[in-house]
């Protein structure tokens, strides 16, 4: 199922959505992810193992640039 609400630069990993354009590579999300589901690669956040992600939301809470967030927009989750 395709997430129609995404912007061109956003990628939906099922549990997480990442906007690499906005990511400044500070490493805060990866450092404090309790499960190490995400990792920095070439100064951008990327998925290490999406299965490990518990959707705890801490990365979204602390990302200074709103480049990573949990789940899909509510209206898209219905399908």
């Amino acid at each position: 199922m395709k997430n129609e609400g995404l912007k061109a630069n956003e990628v939906d990993y099922g549990k997480l959505i990442i906007n690499a354009d906005w990511c400044k590579g500070c490493g805060i999300c990866t450092a404090f992810c309790p499960t190490k589901a995400i990792v920095l690669k070439n100064e951008k956040v990327t998925i290490a193992d999406i299965d490990k992600c518990t959707q705890c939301g801490l990365c979204e809470l602390r990302c200074p640039d709103y480049a990573i967030y949990v789940g899909r927009k509510k209206n898209e989750q219905k399908d």
Partner: peptide
Amino acid sequence: KLPQIWCPGCGHGIITRA
């Protein structure tokens, strides 16, 4: 207008969101 002009890892973005 995003991303903000702030430096990578600047705490201001986190507080603004909060």
